[in-house]
Amino acid sequence: MEPGTDDEQYLRCVEKDVLIPKMMREKARVRCAAEVEAFTKCCQESGFLMVVKCRDENAALKECLKKHYEDPIFYEECKQEYLHERAEFRRTGVPLKKRLQKLPTSM
């Protein structure tokens, strides 16, 4: 696919159904950090009884994540970010994560 063509916006099924939702899950977990932390803490403190004791924390976490998964604006943000990363990879041949690892930590 040549840069600047409409093909740059085309998404394969695996991108639509797997890669973008994966990005959404990762970002949603960051946006729901308070709920993730509360659920994790509850589970660590409750041991085997976590299924019973952490219902409220689990429900709050699920609700927060669901809110993001079902948000079409959030999906579009993740899709555009994915398309940008894919375009950069096609241009440079280096995945974004590898490029970020090579950046100096101090300047």
Rank of each mutant, 00 (worst) to 15 (best):
E8N: 10
C54S: 02
E85Q: 13
D56G: 08
K79Y: 07
M24W: 04
K97H: 06
K53G: 05
E77T: 11
K53I: 08
L83Y: 01
Y10A: 10
R31C: 10
C43G: 10
K22M: 07
E70A: 12
A87F: 03
L19A: 07
Q101P: 02
D56V: 10
K27P: 02
D71W: 06
K79L: 10
S106N: 13
Q80C: 04
A33P: 02
A38E: 06
D17T: 12
D17F: 14
Q80D: 10
Y10D: 06
Y10K: 12
G93E: 10
E8T: 11
L103D: 07
R29M: 13
L49R: 04
E76Q: 15
P95C: 08
C78K: 06
C42N: 04
V36E: 02
R25M: 05
A33V: 12
T105G: 14
E77R: 11
G93C: 08
C32M: 05
H68K: 07
M24V: 15
R12F: 15
G93F: 05
D17G: 07
K102P: 01
K79G: 06
F39T: 04
E35V: 13
E63T: 15
K98D: 15
C32Q: 03
V18D: 09
R29A: 10
N58T: 04
K16E: 15
Q9N: 11
Y82V: 04
R99M: 13
E45M: 07
Q101G: 01
A34R: 10
R31L: 15
E70P: 03
F48S: 07
C64M: 00
